[in-house]
Structures are given as C-alpha cells and as structure tokens.
Design a protein around this nucleic acid. Sequence first.
DNA 1: CGGCTTCTTGAAGATATTCAAACCCAGTGG
DNA 2: CCACTGGGTTTGAATATCTTCAAGAAGCCG
Lengths: 234, 234
Amino acid sequence: MKRRQIDAAWTGNAQCQDCGLRELVLFADLDQNDFNLIHLPIEEITCETGTVLYSAGEEGAALFTLRVGLVKLVQYLPDGGQRIVRLLKPGATAGLEASLGQPYEHSAIALRPTRLCRIPRPVIDRLSDETPRLHRQLMQRWHAALREADGRLTDLSTGKAPQRLARLLLQLVEPDATVSLFSREDLGAMLGITTEHASRTVVELKRKNAITELSANRFQCDVSQLRDIGAADS
Amino acid sequence: MKRRQIDAAWTGNAQCQDCGLRELVLFADLDQNDFNLIHLPIEEITCETGTVLYSAGEEGAALFTLRVGLVKLVQYLPDGGQRIVRLLKPGATAGLEASLGQPYEHSAIALRPTRLCRIPRPVIDRLSDETPRLHRQLMQRWHAALREADGRLTDLSTGKAPQRLARLLLQLVEPDATVSLFSREDLGAMLGITTEHASRTVVELKRKNAITELSANRFQCDVSQLRDIGAADS
DNA sequence: CGGCTTCTTGAAGATATTCAAACCCAGTGG
DNA sequence: CCACTGGGTTTGAATATCTTCAAGAAGCCG
C-alpha cells in the first residue's frame, strides 16, 4: 500500500457558503457575518486510497470534514500492531483534537478515494471566540465521535467473528445493498481478529450466500440474513 | 445486587466556589460572576455500590461530576447481555449528552461507594449561553471521554485475557499498589469475556503472584510483573 | 515473464465458551 | 444453634472458536 502525504492533492479553496453539504458539515449554523471572520483558506482536498491525512502525535494544525469516501483512524499498539479505532463516513469530522490545541491522537488514512475540507486551526479558534454557534456543532461532533467509539465496542468487539463482520457490513451497506470492502488486514484490525481469520470469515459469509462477490471487493448483501447473523450466532 | 435509585441520597447543596476539586471539575474556569448565574441547586450526592445514577434512554436532566468512587457506564446488547463501555474515576463527568439536550446513552451505576455532584441541565444551558469559559471545559470533557473510549478498545479489547486483565488492573491501581476489584460478571463485561473466564484469569494472575488477595476483592499488585503481562503475552 | 503483495487454505495448538456441578458465605427461619 | 437457601465464585470436561505458522494461489506492476 503506497502512502502519500496530502501535499500535492490540493483542489481549490472551498466555497463554504455554497457547500452542498452545508447541513452536514461543521459550519451548518454559521451566517454571513461569521463567514466574514474566516481569513484563512479552507482547502478542498481530493485524495486517493492510502493517503495519510495526518499521523498520530503530530501537532493538530487543522481539522477535516469528510465529504466523500471513507477514512480510518488507527492507533498503533505497543506490540507494533495496529487497531482501527474509528471509521469516518461523509459528514464526519477528523482531528477534532486540533480544536483544543492538542496533537493528533490517531493516524487518519483514506480507505477509498476521498474528498474533504481542511479547516486550519486558526479559523476554528477565531470562530470559536466570536460566535457561539460553532460550539453547538463542535459538541455535536464530539458527541457523534463518542457514539461511534462506543458502538465500535459493542458492535464490533463483542461476539463471534461472523457476527462482528455482519454488523460491520450492515454499517457499510449502500442503499442499493452493495458494499465495497477493504483489505483483509484492515478488516482484522477493525474486528479485533487476525488477517487470516478475517479472510476465513468473509469466505464463510460468501458460502452462506449472505454476501455475493460482484467484482473485486464489491459485494451484494442479503441484508436480512446479515441481520440474523449479526443478532444471534446460529 | 440491590439497585437503589438516587432519590434518597441527597447530601446537601454544593459550594462550588470552595470545592476542593476545583481544578478537576467542570467549573474550573468560572469566576464569581459566572457563579452568580447559577440559580438552581447543585446537589452533592452520596451513594453506595449498585446505585443507578441514571438509565439509558431517560431524558438527560442533569450531568454528574464524580468526586469519589467508581462508576460504570453500561450499554445493553441486543441479546440482553451488558457491556461496560467506560469506567469513570474521580474528576470525570457522566451524562455529558444531557448538555446537548439528548437522552442518556448508557446506564450509569456506582461500582463502589461514591460521591458526586449533580448539575441540572438548566444550569449548564444558562452558563453555556453566558460564558464561553465553560465551553472549553465541556470540550475537554468530551475529549477525555473519547480518549477513554479509544483506550478501552486498544487496551481492554485487544489481546489475550491475561493481558487485558493486567492492563485493567494497571488502570485501577492506587498509589499504594493495591486494587479493589469488582464482581467477576462486571470484569467479564469490561474485558469482553465470560464471567467464568474472568474468574479463571484472576486465579491465573494470583497463581503467578502478579496479584495477592489481601481481603475479599482487595489485591496487592506486583506492578512491574503486571506491566510485563500487559505488554506481551509470554 | 518474474517479483511482489495480498488473499486463501490447511493443520496443529492455544485460547475461550458452554454447561454442569461443587463451593463459599451471608442471611433467614426453624 | 444449625440447617437451609440463594447469590456469587470457582472448577472441570467437552467443545467451539481463534491464532499461528507455513505454504499455495491469485493479482498487480515493472
């Protein structure tokens, strides 16, 4: 897996006022006066699978809003292994710690081609001082992140491997009942199992026809069967 | 285990300005003017092991700051089992969701005799509107809760049972190298293993003399050995 | 076509679960 | 006082699940 830093992937300055995701993103509540407070460019970044948005321990210089794609937050374990701590979907925020002046706690890596907005910390600081409207949104973000984290524990770290995988798939299905899966290594790091066992488990669900491989790592899901498997292990 | 609701356990109204934990608690940054905004009583509550502070799904009417003791936040699984999502130690905050007007996401239950302050939501709302000083603290709380949650995943849901238990013990040791443990059932719910296996694992650490039972559920810890066990499984 | 990585498969052994039974201990009532 | 009871804990044995190590298959890229 090639890992590129994000320096070269600049797309252009964002037009937040016209953002199609206004409802979703951090600036949902801001008005025109608030936008006038922004004096630093908010970049819109496009990057491909494997791109490292930031690394654990770095100074938190910016915060990211995900527009398209999928991003993993990973923490490295004492023994060198990695554990995926959270998955970010469009509308989610990465690097919230930055808004508190803290270094990043995870490494953020794109799992698919991804588009996101990079909001420099000074912008957050400025807005934070001037408008309370941002606070509500920031808190909501913290809250959402925490729910995600709790859910990861109850959904993806509890029960047998097939249950966990089924629940993960249910979190990832598109409205058309398809899923793009990522590498078996990442799957293992998500579910807390070995790469090999992740592979076996995928095969097992395929054998049961709970999922059907359409093309490389794209699957058609039998949602109701996945729900059965995820709920109680038969 | 008897579970009492907290109605009867009222100790008195808190004197926040004089609070010995000012550094630790939510109101650390407030000044006299801010305190004047508080028009509802902040109760100081004392409760014993097993007391339910609040239950998942209830309207979030207040937020709690833990002064003494230990509190578990549990989420109930689809299959009826419970998983302990977080452990709160003195200085931590329970029920942050309340400050966003959301229902509680967990049930909070005391694992030991506990003292805490109950801050009604209107107080938070009022202060939130009037003083930005509270925001920083609230964010810090969210941040801390999130770190806790992430840590639970990497420390206590990864690796073999003895490793997990060792790491949990290290989180709980007092300065004098002793630990008060809770029930085997709760241990299992923390570590993601069965009650029986939790029991066996405790016995195993006792056999290795990594811990020594002083009295019922009080142990003397060999911290350095626990660290070894927690790091790599031998 | 190599050479590389990722995915899959196999088999042996380690680790955890399940179900059942024994145990301990505190509280109850005869 | 002692037997009885009920909760939580411990133990045992059989089984299920996961890991480990090793090797083969399948893709991908130069």
